[in-house]
Simulated assay, not measured.
Amino acid sequence: MDLLSDVVAAMRVGRPHYARGERHTPWAMRHPSFAGAGFHLVLEGRVWLTPSDGEPVELQAGDIAFLPHGSSHSVASDPGGCAALLPPTPLVDLRRDGLTDRGEAGVGVRTTMLCGAYLMDRARPHPLLAEMPEVVHLPARPGRHAALRGATELLATELAEPRLGRDALLPALLDALLLYMMRAWLDERPGGDAAGGWSAALRDPAVHAALQGIHGAPERPWTVKELGAAAGLSRAAFSRRFTTSVGRPPLSYLTWWRMTLAAGLLRGSDASLRHVANRTGYASEFAFSAAFKREHGMSPGAYRRQNTSTGPRVDLP
Results as ranks from 00 to 15, higher is better:
residue 245 S to G: 14
residue 246 V to S: 15
residue 247 G to L: 00
residue 247 G to K: 07
residue 247 G to H: 10
residue 247 G to Y: 12
residue 248 R to N: 13
residue 248 R to G: 04
residue 248 R to I: 12
residue 249 P to Q: 14
residue 249 P to F: 11
residue 250 P to Y: 09
residue 250 P to G: 12
residue 250 P to A: 09
residue 251 L to A: 09
residue 251 L to R: 13
residue 252 S to Q: 13
residue 252 S to V: 09
residue 253 Y to E: 14
residue 253 Y to R: 13
residue 254 L to F: 05
residue 254 L to D: 08
residue 254 L to M: 11
residue 255 T to Q: 11
residue 255 T to W: 04
residue 257 W to F: 11
residue 257 W to D: 08
residue 258 R to F: 02
residue 259 M to S: 02
residue 260 T to F: 01
residue 260 T to Q: 02
residue 260 T to M: 06
residue 261 L to C: 04
residue 262 A to C: 02
residue 263 A to P: 04
residue 264 G to L: 02
residue 264 G to M: 07
residue 264 G to A: 06
residue 265 L to Q: 07
residue 265 L to C: 07
residue 265 L to M: 07
residue 266 L to K: 09
residue 266 L to D: 06
residue 266 L to R: 10
residue 266 L to Q: 03
residue 266 L to P: 08
residue 266 L to F: 07
residue 266 L to V: 01
residue 267 R to D: 00
residue 268 G to D: 15
residue 268 G to A: 15
residue 269 S to T: 15
residue 270 D to Y: 06
residue 270 D to L: 13
residue 270 D to W: 12
residue 271 A to Q: 07
residue 272 S to A: 13
residue 272 S to T: 04
residue 272 S to L: 12
residue 273 L to V: 06
residue 273 L to D: 03
residue 274 R to P: 01
residue 274 R to E: 11
residue 274 R to N: 08
residue 275 H to I: 12
residue 276 V to M: 02
residue 276 V to A: 01
residue 276 V to H: 01
residue 277 A to L: 02
residue 277 A to W: 05
residue 277 A to E: 01
residue 277 A to F: 05
residue 277 A to V: 10
residue 279 R to L: 13
residue 280 T to H: 00
residue 280 T to W: 00
residue 280 T to G: 01
residue 281 G to E: 06
residue 281 G to S: 08
residue 281 G to Q: 07
residue 283 A to N: 06
residue 283 A to Q: 09
residue 283 A to F: 05
residue 284 S to R: 03
residue 285 E to C: 08
residue 285 E to F: 06
residue 285 E to N: 04
residue 285 E to L: 00
residue 285 E to R: 07
residue 285 E to W: 03
residue 286 F to I: 13
residue 286 F to N: 15
residue 287 A to C: 11
residue 287 A to M: 11
residue 287 A to I: 03
residue 288 F to Y: 09
residue 288 F to R: 02
residue 288 F to P: 03
